[in-house]
Nucleic acid binder design. Structure first.
Length: 477
RNA sequence: GGCGGCAUGGCCAAGUGGUAAGGCAGAGGAUUGCAAAUCCUUUACCCCCAGUUCGAAUCUGGGUGCCGCCUCCA
């Protein structure tokens, strides 16, 4: 059983073979920290978190590096708008990023380099490219010469000749005029008045976006890495350029496997800042959608496919998560599982691994989880409602093993039990008092009053469950 | 225009040659003063056309529709 991944570079599903047995080096393109992360980022980073967790679960020692792009026009613009500095904007959004990722139970990267702290490596790489004739400077800018690099376009399938024809009509701006080929891109941009800049052999300025990643990958993980990750929208030009820069400098392949995740769509269109159709991670979570619901929502689709974000689909995920969560809650209460896995459970575990090996088929993997969860959920709900027989059933070794396996596999997907949100400001005593009042109303056959109390509590997130024998229990939902 | 991808029940979605996983919604039943919640049961021939094959959602060819990239973007 080996992991197979869709490699954008070859456009094929390939068996994963690490450079060094048992070890995996991964570089994941991070965010440009000019604003809060939205659901597109969430989807991407959840997918890669699952890849990472699965590799670890499979026994690999994983080194995961994710960068912050903290030098960028958008950050500068934002700083100018609010009258602060590039550093202030970056710092604030990095803090937000860390917090948002933590809420989604995304493992922090092993190392998170920043462009501003990698300037030496960036300048060194540009110099190296210049020395090799792959770069040229023009009026304080330094460009990469795509025509000098055989293989440019191999990731995205571009054809330089063809594109030149197409671009012929749109060479308008000054910058375009300076380039030898329309696809040439800036490695270093000369400073403009009033902008943050850094010294360099080519004059004060700042690095281009693509070179930042090339430099950070090399500095953190070496010339060749196992896996490079990113959103499908980065294939061209970002990753294509990254490959060109790195491979022109080192003469070695930059990454063996290139994985790209599909976009999050809203009404059939890509969620993005520029279209203004985005929902930030924190806005969604703060609106009451649980982090695990969001995780489940994204993992129900294959990572490469577009994912349409709709209220209805999210609602479905929330209800689905409720069931899984109930089953996971039981895992903490059962007896210690025996180390021997019963045959049926061992088969489930194998099936889970087989689906994940198949290019991270989380949708199919979730089916295994739901099947494992089904009896546990039923039991958990019976216990919740005070069924003592159910409590006894939960202590069997068989169920303990099942609960334990569910917990383990859910963990591979980063799904973990969530405590019921403590919504509403009512204390337990206040709730009990309301229940007593409703009981009295019912006894007096004043059902409208009884229903009124129930509705009022429901509005505050308190759900009443009437049980046989006139007993009423409640849950915070 | 170029490159890449997708089209499966009311919604989401797996399945890549042997008669359609899973989740949500819906329906029926149990329970209830009525509900809610919960539990049990249950619901599809896979965009269209042609072809290959004993057999195709799955392969080939042709359509149609949709999306992404080609400018910053996860």
């Amino acid at each position: 059983m080996t992991l197979k991944l869709t490699n954008t570079l070859t456009r094929r599903v390939e068996e994963f073979q690490p450079i060094e047995p048992g070890k995996v080096s991964i570089y994941c393109c991070g965010v440009t920290v000019y604003d809060l992360c939205h659901l597109g980022h969430a989807r991407s980073y959840i997918a890669w978190d699952v890849l990472r967790r699965y590799l670890i679960w499979s026994g690999y020692a994983v080194t995961f590096v994710q960068n912050y792009t903290d030098i960028d026009d958008k950050i500068l613009n934002r700083a100018a708008e609010e009258g602060s500095s590039m550093e202030a904007v970056s710092e604030r959004n990095i803090d937000a990023f860390v917090a948002d990722m933590a809420r989604l139970n995304i493992l922090p990267a092993d190392r998170m380099p920043r462009a501003t702290r990698s300037l030496d490596a960036i300048r060194a790489l540009i110099s190296e490219l210049e020395a090799k004739g792959a770069a040229y400077s023009a009026d304080g800018d330094v460009y990469f010469a795509v025509m000098k690099h055989a293989g440019y376009g191999k990731l995205s399938g571009r054809d330089l000749e063809q594109q030149q024809d197409n671009a012929a009509g749109r060479v308008a701006s000054e910058e375009e005029a300076r380039k030898l080929h329309p696809f040439d891109f800036a490695l270093w941009k000369g400073t403009k008045p009033g902008e943050a800049s850094f010294p360099s052999p080519w004059g004060a300025g700042r690095p281009g976006w693509h070179i930042e990643c090339s430099a950070m990958v090399r500095e953190e993980l070496g010339d060749t890495i196992d896996i490079h990750l990113g959103g499908a929208d980065l294939v061209f030009p970002h990753h294509e350029n990254e490959i060109a820069q790195s491979e022109a400098a080192t003469g070695k392949e930059l990454a063996h496997y290139w994985l790209h995740n599909g976009m999050v769509n809203v009404g059939g269109q890509k969620m993005s800042k520029s279209l203004g159709n985005f929902t930030t991670i924190r806005a969604l979570l703060d609106s009451g959608v649980s982090p695990m619901t969001l995780r489940l929502f994204t993992l129900q689709a294959h990572y490469r496919k577009p994912l349409d974000f709709t209220a209805e689909a999210l609602e479905a995920a929330a209800t689905g998560w409720k069931g899984l969560n109930a089953a996971l809650g039981l895992a903490g209460e059962t007896a210690t599982a025996s180390t021997e896995l019963p045959p049926a459970l061992a088969a489930s575990r194998e099936r889970f691994a087989a689906t994940m090996d198949d290019d991270l088929n989380t949708s199919a993997a979730l089916a295994v989880l739901f099947e494992l969860a089904k009896p546990l959920r039923a039991l958990a709900n019976r216990i919740e409602r005070g069924d003592d027989a159910a409590r006894a059933e939960a202590t069997t070794a068989e169920l303990a093993s099942q609960a334990s396996l569910l917990q383990e596999l859910a963990g591979v997907l980063g799904l973990q039990h969530e405590q019921d949100a403590t919504a509403g400001g009512l204390s337990d005593a206040e709730i009990e008092a309301q229940i007593e009042a409703r009981k009295a109303a019912k006894a007096a056959k004043d059902f409208p009053a009884a229903d009124g109390i129930r509705e009022a509590l429901k509005a505050q997130g308190i759900e009443l469950i009437d049980k046989p024998g006139g007993i009423t229990e409640w849950l915070r939902s």
